[in-house]
Design a protein around this nucleic acid. Structure first.
Lengths: 128, 128
DNA sequence: GGTGCCGGTTACTTCAACGGTACCGGGACG
DNA sequence: CGTCCCGGTACCGTTGAAGTAACCGGCACC
């Protein structure tokens, strides 16, 4: 393994198996709307139709699916108050709240670097 | 922290349009392997076949696709050294390096809370 | 009796990512 | 000559998330 130019890079220390814990990240983040939903719940419980307002463009079906999957993952809690018209509230669980910090870090990065990212894409287009 | 029924939670301050900057997060993170690839490049440039070793289970096709898309986003740089057999190296760009910090935060979260997450899913199964 | 509201559901279509297998160019090496 | 190596590409099928549109139960109000 003759790496002629430059010093040898630090060796890889770990393998990344398909079910390594890091895989949970895309599982949580892959849904298009889940991070936005989390943000909407940051300030307190919200009703279904209340969530639809800031989430411009989401459909009832996708919102319901996303909430269901976040409930399944234990980051969101669904509470049904009886009555009519029906009333349902969604809130962050304690586990969900612990996700806000890490999410903030990534969101801040994306705000700061979205420009570079789009520029890189444009340049890539031009080259090809 | 209890939220009395009737008292308004803190108001939502922002709308989340389909093309809001936060949308860049899933764009980057949704690829199953991209975060792992970033980790593999952390220690220095790697060759294509070198990357396949720690990324247990990835196929050449998917690795090539992922690297191409990360190159397009400007977080990875591809360098072709001539010769034969061919030699190609992938490395993080400065932009890619800035992503390591935020990524660490999310990875740490997933390491610490993967258990809770899986437990929540199991309980959800039992309830339904 | 008709309409509206809330919180969804169902059926159908579209699309991107993933996975698997096969194959390739071209020099090096025997 | 044949074979290996590296870094891929082509083709195909599957899956899962997203989008569209229509519909629903049940009470409340007019």
């Amino acid at each position: 393994m003759s790496v002629e130019q430059g010093s040898a890079p630090t060796p890889l220390t770990a393998d990344f198996f398909p079910d390594c814990p890091v895989s949970a990240v895309p599982v949580l983040g892959s849904r298009k709307w889940s991070w936005k939903i989390l943000r909407c719940l940051e300030g307190g419980p919200r009703r279904f139709s209340e969530l639809r307002v800031p989430l411009v463009g989401i459909t009832a079906k996708v919102l319901a699916e996303s909430l269901r999957s976040m409930e399944q993952d234990g980051v969101v809690a669904r509470t049904e108050y009886g009555g009519n018209p029906p009333r349902v509230e969604y809130a962050l669980t304690p586990l969900g709240r612990t996700l806000l910090g890490p999410m903030d870090a990534v969101c801040a990065w994306s705000r700061e670097n979205l420009g570079s990212l789009l520029a890189a894409r444009e340049e890539y287009e031009r080259e090809s």
